[in-house]
Amino acid sequence: MSATEPAQAAGRRTKLTVRAAFVVANVALVGVFIHQSLATSSFPVASPSDARHGALADGFVPAGVKVFDDEIPGVANLDPELLGALRRAATDAAHDGVEFFVNSGWRSPAYQEQLLTEAVSKYGSREEAARWVATPDTSPHVLGQAIDIGRSDATAWLSKHGAAYGLCQIYDNEPWHYELRPEAVDHGCPPRYADPTHDPRMQR
């Protein structure tokens, strides 16, 4: 054996040790990622956007909520007559393969103010924001008298059949926004406003 052979053998052992340590570290990292993935799927937490949009108790409605979900305050706190009409319509729409999802329903005054503040930031002025979001003092959502329905097949169904249940689209620019107009059952829905700024209720 030459004088360099022990050194070469030691070098090979060092490389093997480093490679083994690298493999162990990678396995550990994979284990951490798997654990985190399982934890996330088993125990979902609110996303930052959920926190920004408010709490369930204030009327924030998470994705996938339907008009029959009484445990969601945004649904449960709707005016009983409006909710009853919505549920009758949703039951009949289901026979046509259409589901009613709730994008927004009842809102607390604080949540309505938060949405208005966000709209002002988005549209650049309070005047422009008023075309989309009312004040807490004027919003029918705060009174539980309005609902924003998703998805497009549901709004299309309501556009065609809603009057039979007293459910009417109120604004041209918001095809998802519905309110109860009982007289519509016999006389059809009233003419729509171009947007909320044309609604006399919003002028208070």
Rank of each mutant, 00 (worst) to 15 (best):
G162P: 04
V18R: 15
R181K: 10
Y178I: 00
R19P: 07
A7F: 08
K122S: 12
W132T: 06
A154S: 05
D153H: 11
Y171C: 01
V23W: 14
A25Y: 10
G188T: 00
F68A: 12
E99Q: 13
R87W: 02
T138C: 03
A51D: 12
E5L: 10
D186C: 03
H198L: 14
H35G: 15
P196G: 02
P80S: 05
S121G: 15
E5G: 04
S159D: 15
L180H: 00
S152T: 15
P6L: 05
H35E: 08
V27E: 08
A55L: 15
I72G: 04
D79N: 14
H187S: 13
A39G: 12
H198M: 13
L143P: 06
E179M: 09
E71H: 14
R181G: 02
S42I: 08
D148H: 04
I149L: 10
G162M: 03
S47V: 09
R204A: 12
A89F: 05
V98A: 07
W106R: 04
Q36A: 10
D172T: 10
V133M: 03
V120L: 02
A164Q: 15
D58H: 07
I72L: 07
H141P: 00
D58C: 04
G84W: 03
A76G: 05
A85L: 01
R126V: 14
V61G: 00
E128P: 08
R13E: 11
N173L: 04
H198A: 15
G59E: 07
G64A: 07
V61K: 01
F101I: 09
V120P: 04
Y193S: 02
C189R: 01
S37V: 01
V32G: 10
Q169F: 08
F33I: 12
A94N: 12
P62H: 04
A156N: 14
T91I: 06
D186N: 11
A156W: 12
D153K: 14
A89L: 05
C189A: 00
V65E: 07
V142R: 03
G97Q: 02
S104A: 14
Y178N: 00
V65L: 06
Q112S: 11
V120A: 02
K160W: 07
T4Q: 13
P191K: 10
R131M: 08
E174V: 09
D172A: 12
L158Q: 01
L180C: 00
A90V: 03
C189W: 02
A146G: 04
D58G: 07
E99T: 15
W157F: 11
T4S: 13
V98D: 06
S42R: 14
A130E: 02
Q169I: 06
E113W: 09
R151I: 06
V120D: 03
F68M: 11
N77V: 04
P140L: 08
D69H: 06
P6D: 03
A110F: 06
